[in-house]
Nucleic acid binder design. Structure first.
Lengths: 213, 213
DNA sequence: GGCAAATGTATACCAGGTGCAGAAATATCC
DNA sequence: GGATATTTCTGCACCTGGTATACATTTGCC
């Protein structure tokens, strides 16, 4: 009801940010597995117990921002203008993400993002959590397709797993190329072309997957 | 060089089986999270240290058999007769799996399998490991497509993620129905119909995903 | 200022997993 | 068959992520 969030709430946000910042700084410097949560708590000047009150697991210290985007594809589908096709809308959204260098497309080459991406790939527990995040995105998208496009449940789930999987592969491919040194601006045209090919593949099918034509 | 595996090797296999059997029995009885690895080690009459020499993690006590099937789709693609389409071969293999009630298709209603499936779904760490297993299957299939069908790398990865994802959804759906009490024999025709629809969707594409036709 | 609720802390604890040094079993060589 | 080298197993101490409990502190509010 009031515009001011209140002192208590502001302090919580600051503590949360302090913990997360301290964690990411330490992880980037020494590696995710080399830093214990106790060290993070100490650096953030907070008890271990309090740290776990803000973040349920060590992995969440890094990935809590990502988790906010879990339902992004579902949101795009729900927010589309009536009459438009979900797949076309998702395609447009992904291309927009590429243009804006949205980290989720893998096309952001800020050093910070680059190092974070590498860290996630190198730590198995972080990669595993990313997989769970992906599974959540699939489920959310499936429900959105079901509820807004009247797609039958099985079809919706099949479509969702294909769409999310394809976006994932595109993002991973972009991230790998940037990690290898290609600047985002250089990669952008190729990323767009790949995305368009991928979405065309989604729409038109794998056919019989025979390369010679 | 010799056909006999040697006493040492035989004993290792027996120990390994004893540990895994004890673990699964205890887990099925009391739940995965309710049983500690120390208890498993004690039941198998082995030290905790030895247990971890055979299985790298607690989850592997349950899932090591599944992990053997990680490269199954890739194997099918590699073993296909020359000239045949990978997707058609995978479709045939999946339908064969349904007919044979292969647990990997979700269509096996042996009580043991049913309880194991439920246990995996209920324990987050087991579900997470299944996701990693799925990711491994995608990677293996992508390489098989690349190497045997000459598919370009990106296309191969896109196709692989779609194919494995679709098989996963089909299996999960079957497993859920069996868990709800439907006998496998009753479910079989529906499972076949769903699989055929799903593979048709893969081959023909999602189009624009509009339900009205 | 004072009180109730929320938040933070210290401590002890549990479980998964590893390193290490030595005991026991197995294979190998004579 | 016996001595020896190698592998495997074991017990132990230890680290880390995560939780329970019980108590202290801070904040919101009147």
């Amino acid at each position: 009801m009031d515009g001011t969030p209140g002192l208590r709430e502001r302090k919580k946000q600051r503590t949360r940010a302090a913990i997360s910042d301290a964690a990411i700084a330490l992880f980037l410097e020494h590696g995710f597995n080399q830093v214990s949560v106790a060290q993070v708590a100490e650096a953030a000047e907070v008890s271990k117990r309090t740290l776990f009150a803000y973040f349920p697991t060590k992995e969440d210290l890094v990935l809590h921002r990502l988790a906010d985007h879990e339902a992004e594809a579902a949101r795009v589908v729900r927010a589309r203008p009536p009459g438009t096709a979900p797949l076309a809308e998702l395609r447009a959204h992904f291309l927009r993400g590429l243009h804006e260098r949205d980290p989720i497309t893998g096309l952001n080459d800020h050093p910070h993002v680059l190092r974070l991406t590498r860290m996630i790939q190198d730590a198995p527990s972080l990669a595993a959590r990313m997989d769970r995040f992906k599974a959540g995105a699939e489920q959310a998208l499936a429900r959105a397709l079901q509820e807004t496009a009247g797609t039958p449940e099985l079809t919706a789930r099949l479509a969702a797993v294909q769409i999310v999987g394809v976006q994932w592969v595109l993002a991973q491919d972009n991230a790998a190329r940037l990690a290898a040194g290609t600047p985002a601006d250089t990669r952008h045209p190729g990323a767009v072309a790949d995305a368009e090919q991928a979405f065309a593949l989604l729409a038109d099918g794998l056919r019989d997957l025979t390369p010679r034509r």
